[in-house]
Amino acid sequence: MNTNEINKLLEPINSFLKCNTPEQWIEKAQKKENLDIVLLDHLVCELKAAQSAMFLIRKYAVDKESGNALLEWLKPFEILIYKRHGNWRDLTNKNKLTKSMIPKSNTPYGQNLIDKMVMLIKEELHHFYQVLEIMDEYGVEYRSITPCRYAKGMLRHVKSYEPDALVDKLIIGAYIEARSCERFARLAPHMDKRLGDFYISLLRSEARHYQDYLTLAQDISEFDITERVEFFGNIEAELISSPDKDFKFHSGKPSS
């Protein structure tokens, strides 16, 4: 993508987000000694994004057999991370769903939710594999890391009743994807060509993911979601702009 294409793609994202990534975070993320944590957390974020999408499909949209097929799809990726078992190079052949997803007979959410989330899972697992490739090239070994406050800080505000709970989760998904897109774009010019090109290559799919989440949220909601989007936008901006002792891909302003 050229500069004009990138700017055009980022324009709605920057309007959607209520703050930019703090310069202090960019400065810290580009330091060589922090490369491992940026890559490790990015890796985990890709898997979590796939898991979150799978959870939404299983909970709200498909029958038990289809839900079990989704679990099997993610299992090799989860085993590699959580049990340290398997060869990451084999995962490129594992990113296939073994059956068509069948909607529950009584689901009000339908095929649109399934189709968008299945595509998202495929893309996130592909990105997961790409990050593993880069980690191998850069000599970064996988190790367990603690999650940052970011997603949990938004999820604690999810309503407890349906369909509002699902709508809130979809809006949060939109903010996570949009912030990822913004950070990839901000980081890319400061990294070496291999990593910078990789981050730019992710922008188009991340931008589409945020739009898919928002579209689904409005389609499913029984009311205009503008106020709820605004609510979570303010929470997201506070998490990003306020001091944060932890440093991760979605962490806030690094505290001194």
Rank of each mutant, 00 (worst) to 15 (best):
K96M: 02
I114K: 07
K99N: 15
L91F: 14
G110W: 05
L113F: 09
S105G: 03
L97W: 07
G86H: 01
T107G: 04
L120V: 00
K122F: 00
K116T: 02
I102C: 04
K122R: 02
P108M: 13
T92Q: 08
N106F: 07
M117T: 03
I121C: 01
G86K: 00
K122Y: 02
K122E: 00
K116Q: 08
T98R: 09
G110I: 04
T107R: 04
W88I: 14
L120M: 05
I114Y: 04
I102K: 11
E123Y: 02
D90N: 13
T107L: 12
P103F: 05
N95F: 10
K99F: 14
R89Y: 04
N87L: 10
L97M: 12
K94T: 15
K104N: 11
D90S: 14
P108G: 03
I114M: 08
L91P: 01
N87G: 00
Q111K: 12
L113K: 05
R89G: 00
P108F: 11
I121V: 09
K116L: 11
L125H: 00
L91M: 11
N106Q: 08
N112P: 01
K94H: 13
N95I: 15
K104E: 08
L120N: 06
L91A: 14
Q111E: 06
T98G: 09
W88H: 06
N112W: 07
K122W: 00
L113C: 11
M117H: 10
T98L: 06
T107C: 04
N95P: 03
M117A: 09
Q111G: 07
R89D: 00
L113H: 06
K96S: 07
L120W: 01
I102S: 05
N93V: 13
N112E: 09
Y109M: 07
L113Q: 06
Q111W: 07
K99H: 12
Y109N: 05
N106L: 07
N106D: 14
R89Q: 08
M101F: 10
D115N: 14
T98S: 15
Y109F: 14
I121T: 11
M117Y: 04
T98H: 11
I114N: 02
P108L: 12
K116E: 09
G110V: 06
N112K: 09
G110P: 02
K116V: 04
N112R: 08
G110F: 11
S100G: 10
T107M: 12
D115Q: 13
S100C: 12
I102F: 09
S100Q: 09
S105E: 10
G86I: 03
I121K: 12
